[in-house]
Amino acid sequence: MPIETWGGKFQRRFKENPFVPIFAGLTTASLIMASTKLRKRQSTSMNYWFRVRVLMQGLTLVAVVGGSWYYGQMKHQKDTKAAAEQERLIERLAFEARLRAAEEADQLEKLEAAARVKMGAGWFGGWWGKSAKSSEGDGKKEA
């Protein structure tokens, strides 16, 4: 597992949910503005920027929760899709295995039937040397 740098982590997180770092940056900017207004002793403007900071914090929180929920749903959908694909693959492999087994059984039956015909095995398995079909056929020729 490779070690992730700060910049790489920020880029990855920004791609996942771009609203969180944007609102966090706006929260920081509003706090800085409020602190500058405090130094200049502009209390009305300072209160305005503190209210903006509270609003930005709330939006940041909404972005965090909303992004977590959204990406959780997306992950759930991906997992469900992957599980369905896996199940289809397993069913297909099982079907192909059953098909191969049926084809092999069919080939084996054909070979056994051909061997029986070649040996002349009739109704009783060729115990008397001739099959029942060949003895019936001999009787029809004489008549």
Rank of each mutant, 00 (worst) to 15 (best):
P18D: 01
M33Q: 14
L89A: 12
F124K: 11
A114M: 07
V64I: 13
A97V: 02
A34K: 11
A132V: 06
W123P: 04
W6A: 04
K130G: 11
G25S: 14
V117R: 11
E103Y: 04
A83C: 01
K15Q: 13
K110P: 05
S45D: 08
W128H: 09
K15G: 12
K40M: 08
I22F: 14
A143V: 01
E103K: 15
E136V: 02
Y70I: 05
G126S: 09
K9I: 02
S43N: 09
D106Y: 02
G25P: 08
H76D: 08
I90R: 14
R92I: 12
L26W: 11
I90P: 06
A84P: 01
I90Q: 13
V64F: 12
D106G: 07
G72D: 02
A115V: 02
F124M: 05
T44E: 11
A113V: 02
V62R: 02
G8W: 01
S135R: 08
W123I: 06
M119H: 08
M119R: 11
G137S: 08
T5S: 00
D79E: 12
E112F: 14
A24K: 08
Q73P: 01
K78N: 10
V117W: 06
F14S: 09
T44S: 09
E136C: 01
F10E: 02
T5P: 00
R13Q: 15
K75N: 10
E87Q: 07
G125S: 00
Q86H: 07
E109A: 13
I32A: 15
M119C: 05
Y71S: 05
T5G: 00
M74G: 06
F10A: 04
A113N: 00
E91R: 05
M33P: 12
G67K: 08
V117Q: 04
S45Y: 10
W123E: 10
L93S: 09
P18A: 01
I22Y: 14
G67C: 02
L93Y: 07
K141L: 08
S134P: 06
W69Q: 05
T60E: 05
A63M: 07
A102W: 00
G8A: 06
L55F: 06
Q77N: 10
A102D: 00
F10G: 03
G126V: 02
Y71Q: 13
F10C: 06
F95S: 15
E103H: 06
R12S: 05
A83F: 01
Q86T: 07
R88K: 13
Q107D: 06
R41W: 03
G122E: 04
